[in-house]
Amino acid sequence: MSVDHPNYNSAAIWIDIRQAAYRNGFHRGLDQPMIQDGWYLLRSATTPFQVHVAAHGEGGPWVLSFSEPRIDGAILPGTDYTGPMPGRSGRALGSLVDLGDALSRIYHLVIEQLPPSAYQEFLDAAQSMPATTDAERLAIVRTAQGIFRQHLDRYWNQTCAITGVQDRGLLRASHIKPWAASNDYERVDVCNGLLLSALWDAAFDQGLVSFSDDGNLLVSPKLSDRATAVLTDGRPVTVSVSAGHAPYLKDHRLRHGFAELDF
């Protein structure tokens, strides 16, 4: 379902949205509406999670948009929304009761079941950061990179995924799918990264090595036998990856010419 351009100049619409937000976990910043292109931003005071809400008019219908792919829209009331929106997913809701129910379900899911999301943390941190100059945009990029590194450090226990090296100065937060080719979510997704010692990071970044979906090492014929021996010390190499790494690893293999066989 899609709706016409939202009516974002109505005080009555904001009152309804604010009440639904306050009752269902999205308390932060309700003293002053934050509106962009007809979408009201709602933020939680207890988690960095945020959503956007818009309305066709006073009394609805309502549209809820969010950017957390771990939330299955099918568990929410309403129907899929396919129109333009600020998030990755959307639900069209026929009543304020449905809007409140959707907000409540999302809030409790995020609080009780889902681990902290680097992307939501980035959205929250970047919310108050202007992006009108090159310096300001660079500051946002550095914020994203810092959050990515923090979550990657936590995921890999501040240890190289291959060698076990823990010297921070030798460790690199290596994107699997390159930054330039990734969307905002992928840029900070912990599954789009490996924490690697500098030599392994260089080999991986240049596509001289890659990994199967099971984490088994794949070596490019472009890598010399000597370099392979130095990297592996003659031992089998595997990386402990999850299912979430698989699409990024596939992208890396295809990007660097590793044949897709039984990976």
Rank of each mutant, 00 (worst) to 15 (best):
Q32S: 10
T47I: 07
S95W: 06
I111L: 13
I13S: 09
T232M: 03
D101Q: 15
A74G: 07
R28Q: 12
V165R: 04
V3R: 04
F26R: 09
E68F: 01
R142F: 04
V97N: 09
V53Q: 05
T79M: 02
F258A: 08
M1H: 14
L93I: 08
Y22T: 11
D134Q: 08
R28M: 11
P178H: 11
Q36K: 14
G257A: 03
V97C: 01
F204H: 00
P48T: 11
Q206S: 15
A173Y: 03
V188Q: 00
I147H: 11
G257V: 06
V230I: 15
Y119N: 05
G94T: 05
I111E: 08
G78F: 01
D16S: 15
L195D: 01
D205F: 04
A54V: 02
L103M: 07
T143H: 00
H108A: 06
A102T: 03
S44A: 14
A21N: 02
G146R: 15
Q158C: 08
S220N: 08
L195M: 10
V141N: 06
A202P: 00
A161R: 01
R253S: 09
C191G: 04
L30S: 05
A54S: 15
F204S: 00
A180M: 02
I13N: 14
F258C: 03
Q32F: 08
I13F: 08
L114W: 02
G60C: 10
S210M: 04
H52V: 00
Q127C: 04
A198H: 03
P77V: 05
I111P: 00
M34N: 10
T132W: 03
I17H: 12
V110M: 12
L171A: 10
L123M: 09
E112L: 11
A243N: 14
D201I: 01
W179K: 06
R168T: 14
D262G: 12
S174V: 10
P221A: 04
G73Q: 08
A203T: 00
Q32G: 08
V141S: 13
S210W: 04
Y155Q: 14
I147D: 07
G73R: 02
L171F: 04
R255E: 11
H56W: 01
A181S: 12
H252N: 05
G73A: 09
D101R: 15
T46K: 14
N7M: 11
G78Y: 00
L123V: 09
D134G: 05
M129Q: 12
H245E: 06
A198K: 05
H108W: 13
A173I: 06
S128I: 02
